[in-house]
Design a protein around this nucleic acid. Structure first.
Length: 330
DNA sequence: CTAGGGTTAG
């Protein structure tokens, strides 16, 4: 009797907790909850409503493919805008191959692409490091009379960087300028990230200043790339400077950026510096998450600072952000 | 009325 009640008290909690990690859980996600209730009420809505209802924001790949087949069955065909939205959502799931094959299906069905969907597909090829296919797609697009725009070129830039063709990437930016395109902050951020990927650290950092000179203000994404790049390489002082710059520029420093720097401080500096930054961040109203605690706790464990460890662990428990498995690991 | 950039721990 006692054992049973303990099991009942513990097991579902653990189960629910692990379950909540997944996407699209009906208990946690409003949109799949809607679909779930719809399925049970026997009503089916057409693709239009799904595209409108935030279905795309919280969707599994199967849902996306299902939606696509629903879309290609309807007559007249949905607009290219609707297909763009779906392909974008699939690309955000990083299922580039799926987006590409659905794009091919569209063409076989006689649904022609426009500059938007071509750009999505080019981006998918670039992000999966299939640069030749991206260039092939570019050729097709141009044959149909669509000139590459700044979005196309930024995507290609990413493709060159990811294929270790950094000098081609830089040349592409020059070519862009010659063609009369103004590189924007996305272009610059892409190139900065690409320079880090190719270990050109000082060039990457210098490019931030150059983009300011060109009138492009770095944003959270730009700084995210730079902070991550310098922390990975142990230049934590520079990362701290960047945090100050962000604050001066009124750019919100989010928990991911703080976590990056805190982890860098743990690895390359002193764990006390990391704890101080953690306090500072919380004082500014940015709450630590499980990643923050994991960085700090595992570092404190290395130094045998058990009283700090237990303090942080009870913090975590108080905040109810404690995955059980962590307690077991430590 | 759609498309391009960064993401931390174990």
């Amino acid at each position: 009797m006692r054992l049973t009640s303990i099991a009942v008290a513990l097991a579902p909690k653990r189960f629910v907790h692990l379950n909540l990690q997944g996407r699209g859980n009906p208990l946690t996600s409003p949109s799949s909850f809607r679909c779930w209730t719809r399925a049970f009420s026997g009503r089916s809505d057409d693709y239009r409503e799904k595209l409108r209802n935030g279905f795309l924001q919280d969707m599994k790949l199967d849902d996306a493919v299902g939606l696509f087949s629903e879309m290609v069955k309807s007559r007249p065909f949905p607009s290219i805008i609707d297909f763009s939205k779906l392909l974008t959502a699939i690309a955000k799931l990083k299922k580039y191959d799926v987006a590409i094959s659905l794009g091919e299906k569209m063409q076989k069905l006689g649904i022609s692409h426009n500059i938007y969907t071509y750009n999505i597909l080019i981006n998918c090829f670039c992000r999966s490091s299939q640069l030749p296919l991206a260039l092939g797609m570019l050729g097709k697009m141009m044959k149909l009379g669509y000139d590459p725009n700044v979005v196309t070129l930024s995507s290609l830039l990413n493709g060159f960087c990811r294929c270790n063709k950094i000098s081609d990437a830089v040349a592409l930016v020059d070519q862009m300028v010659e063609m009369g395109y103004q590189p924007d902050k996305v272009t610059f951020t892409t190139l900065i990230h690409g320079l880090f990927l190719n270990n050109k650290v000082s060039e990457a950092v210098a490019l931030v200043d150059r983009m300011v000179e060109k009138g492009c203000q770095p944003d959270l994404v730009t700084y995210g790339a730079v902070v991550n790049g310098v922390c990975k390489r142990g230049n934590i002082d520079l990362a701290l400077d960047l945090l100050t710059k962000m604050e001066k520029g009124n750019i919100e420093v989010n928990v991911v950026i703080y976590n990056t720097v805190i982890d860098g401080l743990c690895k390359y500096k002193h764990v006390d510096d990391a704890l101080n930054l953690f306090n500072e961040m919380e004082n500014k109203g940015v709450r630590g998450n499980v990643v923050t605690y994991n960085s700090l706790i595992s570092c404190l464990c290395c130094y045998g600072r058990w009283s700090d460890v237990s303090r942080l662990l009870s913090d975590m428990i108080e905040r109810k952000s404690t995955p059980m498995f962590l307690l077991l690991v430590h």
